[in-house]
Each structure stands twice: as C-alpha cells, then as structure tokens.
Amino acid sequence: MAESTFMLEVVTPERIVLSDEVEFMVVPAVEGELGVLRNHAPMVAGLKIGVLRYRGTDGITRHMAVSGGFMEVIDNEAIVLAETAERGSEIDILRAKAAKERAERRLQQRTEEINFVRAQMALQRALARIKAAEADQRL
C-alpha cells in the first residue's frame, strides 16, 4: 500500500462493488458529507442515499450511487456496507431518469394509495444515480 492510500471496500448484499486502494473518499453520511484520508481515526457512520466519490491511485475521481448503510474506518481500511451501490459508469442514465419521472408523478398525485415516504426515497435514489452517472460520463 502506498504511503498516501488506504483500502476501500464497498459491499452490498449481492456483491462486492469495489475493493481497491484509494487516495481519498467522501461518503453521504447521515449528518452530512464525510471525507476520509489515510490514517483517519477509527469510526463508524450511518449513510444516507447519495453519491460516494473516491480517487483511485490513477488520480481519477469516480462516483458511486449508494442507498443507505454503514461505513467503518479502522487501520487504513474503510468498509462501506450499503443496501445498494452502483458505480457511475455502470448506471443506465435513461432508466434512472425514467425512475425520477415516475417518482415525481407519484409525489404529485398525493392519493391514499401512494406511499409518500417510499416515493420520496425512490426520487432520492434516482437523483443520486443520475448525479453519479453524469459525473462519471465527464471522465
């Protein structure tokens, strides 16, 4: 491991999304964005729906849409246990935009059959996926 890097693992119930050395990362923590560099103090943090960004050893900053979970940092290793996680480069942006539009329509209807909280979360997930995909398209 290089002197300026640490190990980052992003894991979901389905797969290991990322396991690589990185120079820094920023996660969407419940209390706000949280940055991590090498030799960070040990910690555990809850995550919300949003975009995780990290810079690999190649100097490129990449993005990943995550939906909740936890992050643990200890001994120059950060482990993100997320409900869902998708690399920006893997996201189908047209599908994400369609999901955003569906969620917005549900929120506008405001009928008793619509679960408002669920529709809000669907909108947040779609926005995070779009943001991660668009950011990685610029690379």
Results as ranks from 00 to 15, higher is better:
residue 92 D to S: 12
residue 99 A to M: 10
residue 13 P to F: 00
residue 87 R to C: 06
residue 46 G to Y: 07
residue 50 G to Q: 06
residue 46 G to C: 08
residue 113 E to C: 12
residue 113 E to P: 13
residue 12 T to E: 10
residue 128 A to H: 04
residue 95 R to C: 07
residue 48 K to W: 00
residue 64 M to C: 11
residue 47 L to T: 00
residue 60 I to N: 14
residue 88 G to T: 04
residue 126 A to W: 03
residue 109 Q to K: 14
residue 95 R to G: 12
residue 38 R to I: 15
residue 2 A to G: 13
residue 91 I to E: 02
residue 121 M to R: 09
residue 39 N to F: 14
residue 3 E to S: 15
residue 135 A to C: 09
residue 133 A to N: 04
residue 76 N to L: 09
residue 120 Q to C: 11
residue 84 T to D: 06
residue 101 E to P: 07
residue 131 K to Q: 14
residue 30 V to Y: 09
residue 109 Q to S: 15
residue 45 A to T: 03
residue 61 T to W: 04
residue 52 L to A: 08
residue 12 T to H: 06
residue 15 R to A: 10
residue 5 T to D: 13
residue 9 E to K: 08
residue 6 F to G: 08
residue 33 E to R: 01
residue 31 E to C: 06
residue 80 V to L: 01
residue 87 R to L: 11
residue 12 T to D: 10
residue 9 E to L: 05
residue 67 S to M: 08
residue 112 E to M: 14
residue 138 R to P: 09
residue 33 E to Y: 03
residue 30 V to Q: 14
residue 78 A to Q: 06
residue 108 Q to V: 07
residue 6 F to I: 06
residue 116 F to G: 03
residue 54 Y to S: 06
residue 15 R to G: 02
residue 76 N to V: 05
residue 33 E to G: 09
residue 113 E to F: 13
residue 71 M to A: 14
residue 137 Q to P: 08
residue 91 I to P: 06
residue 67 S to V: 05
residue 20 D to W: 01
residue 92 D to V: 06
residue 38 R to W: 07
residue 127 L to P: 10
residue 5 T to P: 13
residue 43 M to T: 09
residue 11 V to L: 05
residue 128 A to R: 00
residue 113 E to S: 15
residue 105 R to S: 13
residue 6 F to W: 05
residue 4 S to W: 05
residue 61 T to P: 09
residue 46 G to I: 05
residue 27 V to L: 12
residue 68 G to Y: 01
residue 70 F to M: 09
residue 53 R to N: 13
residue 47 L to E: 00
residue 35 G to W: 04
residue 31 E to P: 06
residue 131 K to D: 14
residue 104 E to C: 05
residue 100 K to N: 11
residue 20 D to T: 11
residue 37 L to M: 15
residue 81 L to P: 05
residue 59 G to A: 13
residue 5 T to F: 11
residue 94 L to Y: 01
residue 131 K to A: 15
residue 98 A to Q: 09
residue 22 V to N: 03
residue 35 G to V: 01
residue 40 H to Y: 11
residue 136 D to R: 00
residue 125 R to K: 12
residue 81 L to E: 03
residue 83 E to N: 10
residue 128 A to S: 11
residue 37 L to H: 13
residue 11 V to E: 04
residue 119 A to S: 13
residue 110 R to Q: 14
residue 96 A to V: 05
residue 7 M to E: 08
residue 90 E to Y: 00
residue 71 M to E: 03
residue 138 R to N: 10
residue 45 A to L: 02
residue 31 E to T: 09
residue 80 V to R: 02
residue 100 K to D: 13
